[in-house]
Write a protein that binds this DNA or RNA. Structure first.
Ligand SMILES: [Mn+2]
Ligand SMILES: [Mn+2]
Ligand SMILES: [Zn+2]
Ligand SMILES: [Zn+2]
Lengths: 140, 140
DNA sequence: TTGCAGATCAGCAGAGGTTGCAGATACGGT
DNA sequence: ACCGTATCTGCAACCTCTGCTGATCTGCAA
């Protein structure tokens, strides 16, 4: 779970009555196993290298469709553009202050956390972002 | 700690060689004890009511100055504009899916959380956003 | 295989939020 | 009160993302 292959996404699009165009297939491939939490611009650049002429609009459209299907998570970056995450497993993130890299971390026993102040609020999910310095930047 | 009065902010600005203008003082007052996590536009509207002619640019400038001094936290809202938080105590947030209200929650024993995947990453802070429905919206 | 209705595409214009810039203004040390 | 310089205002530009439109392409039925 949590990793959809291009073939699975193709099937899912067809099942929902959405057409599977070459542009969409390219994006399925670019996203598959992508751990970089890329922005739309970044995916557009990578897509353009393989398919000159593809439009940024189409990239956004496909990312939005995938998000609506629950196949992508959107992560709001502090500065600038949204980042897209094809990892739909329950996980959290570590953001490097120096290079901006975002990588996945997994948290156990999150439910045992003691939280005060909910005051009637009913949480149904939580997202943690750790800030700090990544291994590569610490070495440099 | 965690709550700076307008007087304290005035002193801090002077200490740093920054001037204390009526515009800045008004914003100090509007932020003091403000638990609403307002946007810049919202603060601009409130400020304009008391000081017609103040510019949105000045509001942003002062909020940025305060943030650079560590007297404000910026919270990147998923959709739209940033929200500013004068509460600089270590705390986290609950975001209502219905009305967008953001309120403070406090977490104990955060350090006891089991996190895997840091892989050399050195975290120095963390921010949790709980998603769900607030008490007021659940009642309606 | 062919043809059609409707989905999708590229390209561009525009919205929303934030920042850069330049000339006018005013804080605050003297 | 004066002056030097930080700040203010107003506007234009910027960045990211979405709306719109005519042309093109896809999936499906025949
Ligand atoms: Mn992730
Ligand atoms: Mn807060
Ligand atoms: Zn790094
Ligand atoms: Zn609510």
């Amino acid at each position: 779970m949590g990793v959809r292959t291009p073939t699975e996404l193709t099937t899912e699009f067809r099942t929902r009555g959405l057409k599977v165009t070459p542009q969409r297939q390219l994006l399925f491939r670019l996203l598959h196993g992508n751990m970089t939490h890329p922005t739309a611009e970044r995916l557009f650049a990578e897509a353009s290298a393989q398919m000159p002429g593809i439009s940024l609009r189409t990239v956004y459209q496909t990312l939005n469709d995938l998000t609506a299907m629950g196949e992508l998570q959107i992560l709001q970056s502090a500065a600038g553009s949204a980042r897209f995450d094809p990892n739909i497993d329950d996980h959290h993130h570590a953001l490097c202050d120096r290079c901006g890299e975002l990588h996945d971390v997994y948290v156990d026993h999150f439910d045992s956390l003691m939280v005060s102040g909910f005051d009637g609020f009913r949480p149904d999910r939580a997202s943690i972002v750790f800030g700090g310095v990544c291994a590569a930047c610490a070495a440099a």
